[in-house]
Design a protein around this nucleic acid. Structure first.
Length: 469
RNA sequence: GGCGCUGUACCCAAGCGGUCUAAGGGGAAGGUCUGCAAAACCUUUAUUCGUCGGUUCGAAUCCGACCGGCGCCUCCA
């Protein structure tokens, strides 16, 4: 029984999908004006893990992630670089897909773009206008926050306090500083579309309301995003969707904690960020995902290269076993199948994940499993290939398919047949040298190969090699 | 000012009233194996959970005060 912390109720609740056959899941995706950083990546990866775990539990998941491709920042970038806004969005949408592929994030069912849903957005604003939740001021359409009963229920804010703290808004067309733009009147040189209020473009919040409704319906199961979206973005989405549809918007709200650098939030505006693409050049995607998984998804997580390096190191413990298993499966020895309680490891893993996605606990289960398997292998002779099959099944289902921290298809031997055979030849020569007690030669072979990135490992069964991942 | 999160070993981090003389990873130390390494395995590394009080038979876990860190309230995952 999966339990999730729901920002709306501020409680951990049992997850019960509206439609038992299909979970409907929406995640706020990127504004495509730049490469995303590893703070953004944390949200994307954690949402991916939630999605994968739901699938592990047997749910079919319709997973929708929007791409915000019309926005002030995009326009600004286009002006700076003297290119069109579509040049900007095309470039960063391509980059986005490259990056999520590198991070092993499963593809969403749909990636709706704001610019391809202008019709739906205009329709929703019209509905809001008809229901008196929106007003038009000279081509700018605003949402009338005061008219929506329950504004602030997600973020725990109340309107009076917000007004006291509210900064003076430069836009004097609004009736109330809390009101926000649904439709922005076109300015010179900006992308715009025709609408009942004249040429213009959608405000930021309305796209998520319109597109989630189109792809997931008026009420759906899970809506997720970074904690900084709680207010005002998600609060505004609720106001728009519930006012327009007259129905509850979302059942479970999930929010991901920030990635900090030196205890400070990583953000574009502070400039203290690393893009996901630069990090994945130096560290593996699996290590990054392990790093995220070792912390609770809602809390802050401090980032440093040292921490990532230690995750990479810890990962080796698991990948060593993965290599060993792949090796044994190739050899396919028959022998004795050791006693091993796989079932309890599955149970522990599920118990951890069920308890509001305790991924750090789940990771601990994986490490315990690896340790236990190693112990069994070390103390048994003639281990049957079926045991390795079961080990692979466990790690595939949990560490690979849910957490995405291992990859059984990543090979540590050479892809190139010739290279593999040459290494094998050197190993044979080195073994001969060893038998002749010519350790100087055998060590030279080992050292030189290491410099080339090929690590030799001697064991009772002989020498194996590994090419740096 | 309002709302919320947070303080556990050298570092990261789980823990949600008793099974905690507190998971897991990194680091460090010793050992088994090895010609030597590497990998793997074994052992050690918090009687203590920011501080001080309280509730309780019993608290890292609940309550209060205090000290410290962070976030949101404005674009931001």
């Amino acid at each position: 029984m999966l339990k999730l912390y729901n920002t709306l109720t501020k409680k951990v609740e049992e997850f019960i999908p509206i439609d038992p056959n299909e979970v409907k899941f929406y995640v706020c995706g990127p504004t495509v004006y730049d490469y995303f950083h590893i703070g953004n990546a944390r949200s994307f990866v954690m949402a991916d893990i939630v999605r994968r775990y739901l699938e592990y539990k047997g749910y079919k998941v319709k997973f929708v992630m929007n791409l915000t491709d019309v926005d002030d920042k995009i326009i600004k970038k286009a002006n700076e670089e003297k290119i069109s806004t579509t040049d900007v969005t095309d470039k960063y949408i391509t980059a986005f897909f490259e990056d999520i592929a590198k991070l092993k994030i499963k593809k969403a069912t749909v990636y709706p773009k704001a610019t391809e849903h202008i019709r739906e957005i205009v329709d929703m604003i019209e509905t809001l206008e008809q229901k008196d939740f929106a007003y038009n001021e000279d081509g700018n359409v605003f949402y009338d926050v005061k008219h929506f009963n329950g504004y602030g229920k997600l973020s725990g804010k109340n309107i009076e306090e917000l007004e006291i703290g509210a900064r003076i808004d430069v836009n004097e067309e609004k009736k109330d500083p809390l009101d926000f733009a649904l439709w922005k009147k076109a300015k010179e040189g900006e992308p715009s579309w025709d609408s009942p209020w004249g040429k213009g473009r959608p405000g930021w919040h309305i796209e998520c309301s319109a597109m989630s409704c189109k792809h997931l319906g008026e009420t759906f199961d899970i809506h997720a995003g970074g904690s900084d979206l709680i207010f005002p973005h998600h609060e505004n989405e609720i106001a728009q969707s519930e006012a327009a549809n007259g129905k509850p918007f979302v059942k479970y709200w999930l929010h991901f904690g920030f990635l900090n650098i030196n205890e400070q939030k990583m953000s574009k505006s502070l400039g203290n960020f690393f893009t996901a693409r630069e990090v994945v050049k130096k560290y593996s995607a699996e290590a990054l995902r392990l790093f995220y998984s070792q912390a609770y998804y809602r809390g802050p997580l401090n980032f440093s290269e040292e921490l990532l390096a230690s995750a990479e190191k810890g990962l080796e413990k698991i990948t060593n076993l993965v290599d060993k298993v792949n090796d044994e499966l190739k050899k396919s020895n028959s022998g004795v199948k050791p006693e091993f309680d796989f079932k309890s490891f599955y149970q522990h893993f599920e118990k951890a994940m069920d308890e509001d996605l305790n991924t750090s606990q789940a990771v601990a289960v994986i490490f315990d499993f690896v340790k236990e398997v190693n112990r069994v292998i070390a103390s048994s002779e003639n281990v049957d290939v079926n045991f390795y099959n079961d080990v692979k099944t466990f790690l595939t289902k949990t560490a690979e398919n849910v957490l995405g921290i291992v990859d059984f298809n990543k090979t540590t031997t050479s892809d190139d047949k010739l290279v593999g055979e040459l290494v094998e030849l050197l190993i044979t020569l080195r073994t001969e040298a060893k038998q002749n007690k010519n350790y100087q030669l055998s060590d030279t072979i080992r050292d030189r190969l290491k410099e080339l990135g090929v690590v030799l490992q001697d064991s009772k069964e002989g020498t194996s090699y590994k090419i740096g991942r």
